[in-house]
Write a protein that binds this DNA or RNA. Structure first.
Length: 455
DNA sequence: TCCCCTTCCACTTTTGAATTGG
DNA sequence: ACCAATTCAAAAGTGGAAGGGG
């Protein structure tokens, strides 16, 4: 179990409420969610987790795997994951740590990953761990595979939503709860910046075995026959490189800021006493500026109930990009709510990101007064993202979810059904835009629930 | 020049169809 | 004919590194 203090350096700021440190398990109401492989996650988190994002989509590693308990065995639930910016900044890797490199870019379309088993009875979710292995991250804003779209060099953290609903149609009427784990936050990158992270990934990811120092790596190197090199040179136009001294050398300069333990990173746990020094990847001195960007004061997160109804929706706004300059990032607020501040209290129930999406005149600027408390919060408005829309995240806003969910579980709908009759033409179009027409069942299960900007 | 992104490579694991044996 | 176990090839997933663009 890590204390709040443990995480702080990595976030270079008060941890988001949702990121508030604490045990690896959440207890909300009767529901309990536990993160699997917490130690592995922590190992990464201590260094500053990075996740590769690519155009075709890249899996996470470590991937999100959770255990659930406290669900009603016979009731059906839907499990969702989405990614929330940790703050409103863009970062760069400078020497041995991450530094702010400016404001965050406008958020890409917000997407949510629906677990392929959804909907399934509580007993199903509880009988074994729930893996989100196939969740993929992309930097392709035009992605049509339903992958979660992120910006490179930005920080995010996953949120897990549990929705009690018999089918996808009834989700918006359902109670749902949101869980986050501090150690799962990460920086999206197109190439690894921190060599420690690279090594950790190589050491733990079976697909990267070929890059491990011992044995296989050498084999791999030696396998680079002249023929291979020639072939490569021919195809890529690259010169034959000296394969002897290029790869798998982790003792690069970026390592020098660390205490030279790159050789045994995976076993670092026993040196917890010096944890904070390893957090160095995050520049800790930029705190003040960070906070100013966040609607910290307005963070009502902690007053939220742990359960909320999600009643009728309203208009939905396709492809709404909101400008960070005008509105704080979801996560920044999330972070600010770290009223949490310390330890366990902050880790207690907060199921904030629930809201309804009443019709609202987009031209009418929203104020805090427009949000009458924990319920009936509106989604971000076009051009004027909800000031607190991030924490009042409204995944089921509008009828859009219906459009995307109109196919229930893969089993029921081998082919995505047409949008409900009441949906507008635009609506259907949007769905198609997101690969709605794919016939592939597995694909279908990955379609975004909230594929549009939702804060 | 620097930073970041894209692309290709070699390697590994995973997956699923085909084959084999009882 | 059926089923389980095994084999094998293709697909998918890795990080490294070069090259390109802004």
């Amino acid at each position: 179990m890590q204390s709040i203090r443990d995480f702080k350096p990595n976030f270079s700021g008060p941890p988001p409420s949702s990121m508030a440190a604490g045990p690896d398990a959440y207890l909300q109401g009767n529901m309990r969610m536990t993160l699997e492989d917490p130690e592995l996650w922590k190992n990464f988190h201590e260094i500053g987790t990075e996740m590769i994002i690519t155009k075709p989509g890249r899996r996470m590693f470590p991937h999100c795997k959770i255990n659930l308990s406290g669900l009603i065995p016979c009731a059906k639930y839907i499990l969702l994951v989405d990614m929330v910016p940790v703050d409103g900044f863009r970062y760069k890797w400078n020497k041995e740590k991450w530094e702010v490199a400016g404001k965050a870019e406008p958020q890409p379309p917000c997407r949510t990953y629906l677990h392929p088993d959804s909907p399934a009875p509580g007993s199903h979710w509880m009988k074994q761990s729930v893996s989100f292995l196939k969740l993929k991250l992309t930097n392709n804003t035009l992605d049509q595979h339903g992958h979660i779209i992120l910006h490179s060099m930005h920080r995010y953290h996953p949120r897990f939503h549990i929705v009690q609903a018999d089918d996808l149609f009834s989700v918006r009427w359902s109670v749902f709860q949101t869980f986050t784990f501090p150690e799962t936050s990460f920086t999206a990158v197109t190439a690894y910046q921190n060599t420690k992270i690279t090594k950790l990934k190589i050491d733990h990811n079976p697909f990267a075995k070929g890059f491990r120092d011992e044995g296989t790596t050498k084999k791999r190197r030696s396998n680079k026959t002249p023929a291979c090199l020639e072939k490569r040179a021919k195809t890529s136009g690259a010169l034959i490189r000296d394969s002897e001294d290029s790869p798998t050398d982790f003792c690069r300069s970026s390592y020098e800021g660390y205490d030279g333990e790159e050789g045994d990173l995976p076993k670092r746990k026993e040196v917890d006493g010096v944890k904070e020094e390893r957090y160095s990847p995050w520049a800790a001195d930029r705190e003040p500026s960070v906070r100013t960007e966040s609607p910290a004061g307005a963070e009502p997160r902690d007053i939220y109930n742990t359960e909320q109804l999600v009643p009728a929706p309203a208009s939905y706004q396709p492809y709404r990009f909101h400008e960070y300059g005008k509105s704080p990032s979801p996560s920044s607020s999330v972070g600010s709510s770290s009223s949490s501040g310390s330890g366990r209290s902050s880790f207690e129930s907060r199921v904030p990101d629930v809201a309804t999406v009443p019709d609202h005149d987009p031209s009418k600027p929203r104020t805090h007064e427009d949000y009458p408390g924990v319920l009936n919060m509106t989604m971000a408005q076009a051009g004027k993202p909800a000031v607190i829309g991030h924490h009042i995240y409204s995944p089921y806003g509008g009828e859009q979810p219906l459009g995307q969910w109109s196919g229930a579980g893969p089993a029921q709908y081998p082919h995505p059904p047409p949008p409900p009759p009441h949906l507008t033409t635009d609506y259907s179009t949007q769905a198609v835009h997101h690969g709605y027409h794919h016939g592939n069942v597995a694909e279908w299960s990955q379609y975004p629930l909230f594929s549009y900007s939702c804060w």
